[in-house]
Computed example of a mutant assay.
Amino acid sequence: MRKIFLLPFLLLFLSSCSSDSSSNPVIEEQMYFPPNDGTTTWTTKSIADLNWNQSAVQPLLDYLELKHTKSFIILVNGRIVMENYFNGHTATSPWYWASAGKTLTSIVTGIAEQEGLLDINDKVSDYLGTGWTSAPLAKENLITCKNLLSMNSGLNDALGDDVSPANLQYVADAGNRWAYHNVYVKLQDVVANASGQTWTNYFNTKLRDKLGMTGGAWVNSGDGLSVYWSTTRNMARFGLMILNKGKWNGAQIVNENYFNQATTTSQNINLAYGYLWWLNGKASYHMPQVQLEFPGSIIPTAPNDMFMALGKNDQKIYVIPSKKMVVIRMGDAADAENLALSDFDELLWTKISALYQ
């Protein structure tokens, strides 16, 4: 009698446990990092595994090829979901990052700060000496390293790529005018002087080698600027470290506080700009080379939490934290030659989002 009496309660208990178990959230997949041993090993994940739309793959690939793409990668949780090469480009072919490489300078500046070598709130002349611009001394001394990271140095952006002192002329007080300008490259001199090493040596030791970005190199572009060249997978490695908030396989490469500053609005003029990173989903944005404000998000077809490294001729690193996703595009200009931003982004994201919607 006692066993029969308890049976309904036992069944009710088991039913409750079963219900609780089915309502528990699925354990989140761990972030994957490819090995740093120089091998080509990189774990993949299929479109089918993600329950994505297989029929959206070919239209995306056709569009990429039509738009002069050389390489394209999608990572989800660090795993390669798509990796495609076009027009004779291969996994071992290097290509230039153009201004997408500004983000390398941003992150290495943060690394130097966390090592106590510099403070981004210090004026640039503390590290380069006075006379690094042709601005009046009082105005030059207003320019901090943070101003170079934020693109609001107040120096004239209409004089070309040359960053010699004669070409760095005063237009406005630092902090009062946003202008996309190659003067950011002076941060590489700041890091070199602060560390007592060449920029290349410091960069290789503190970032490139720690991420296994084998073979990448800075190449002088002939106008006093260096442009980074690497394989597409090396660009993807950098994007993956950024997706993981400055960590690589458990190692903190750049501290999370700096990372958060770099990937959020850095000043109140161009809301869509951090520390050399472009930010999607803001109320307004500025374009390079113009002093106009445009309403809305830079790429309305892309996720609002996305931030980006964007370079001339459509070199792209898109990082989307909400989707644990990194997207890389390298190649020639999709349309007419352009600077960091182009209409290409919007249609490209229409096709990328069709994969998972």
Results as ranks from 00 to 15, higher is better:
residue 242 I to L: 15
residue 242 I to P: 11
residue 244 N to G: 07
residue 247 K to Y: 09
residue 247 K to N: 13
residue 248 W to M: 05
residue 249 N to L: 00
residue 249 N to C: 03
residue 250 G to H: 02
residue 253 I to S: 07
residue 255 N to D: 15
residue 257 N to P: 10
residue 257 N to K: 12
residue 258 Y to I: 04
residue 258 Y to L: 04
residue 258 Y to W: 08
residue 259 F to Q: 10
residue 260 N to D: 13
residue 260 N to W: 04
residue 260 N to G: 09
residue 261 Q to H: 13
residue 262 A to M: 05
residue 262 A to R: 09
residue 264 T to C: 08
residue 265 T to R: 11
residue 265 T to H: 06
residue 269 I to V: 06
residue 270 N to A: 06
residue 271 L to C: 06
residue 271 L to T: 10
residue 271 L to S: 14
residue 272 A to C: 03
residue 273 Y to E: 09
residue 274 G to A: 02
residue 275 Y to R: 06
residue 275 Y to V: 00
residue 276 L to I: 01
residue 278 W to S: 00
residue 278 W to D: 03
residue 282 K to W: 06
residue 283 A to K: 13
residue 283 A to C: 09
residue 283 A to H: 10
residue 284 S to I: 08
residue 285 Y to K: 02
residue 286 H to C: 14
residue 286 H to E: 14
residue 286 H to G: 14
residue 288 P to G: 02
residue 291 Q to C: 10
residue 292 L to Y: 13
residue 292 L to G: 13
residue 294 F to Q: 12
residue 295 P to S: 09
residue 297 S to Y: 02
residue 297 S to H: 08
residue 298 I to P: 11
residue 302 A to E: 02
residue 303 P to S: 10
residue 304 N to Q: 14
residue 304 N to C: 07
residue 305 D to V: 04
residue 308 M to A: 11
residue 310 L to T: 01
residue 314 D to G: 04
residue 315 Q to F: 01
residue 316 K to D: 13
residue 317 I to H: 04
residue 318 Y to L: 01
residue 318 Y to I: 00
residue 319 V to Q: 09
residue 319 V to E: 03
residue 320 I to T: 12
residue 322 S to G: 10
residue 323 K to Q: 13
residue 324 K to S: 12
residue 325 M to G: 07
residue 325 M to N: 03
residue 325 M to C: 09
residue 328 I to H: 03
residue 328 I to S: 07
residue 329 R to K: 13
residue 331 G to R: 06
residue 333 A to C: 09
residue 333 A to R: 09
residue 333 A to T: 11
residue 333 A to S: 12
residue 334 A to G: 14
residue 334 A to N: 05
residue 334 A to E: 09
residue 335 D to G: 15
residue 337 E to M: 12
residue 337 E to T: 14
residue 338 N to R: 08
residue 340 A to R: 11
residue 342 S to M: 02
residue 343 D to Q: 12
residue 343 D to I: 12
residue 344 F to Y: 13
residue 344 F to Q: 11
residue 345 D to W: 05
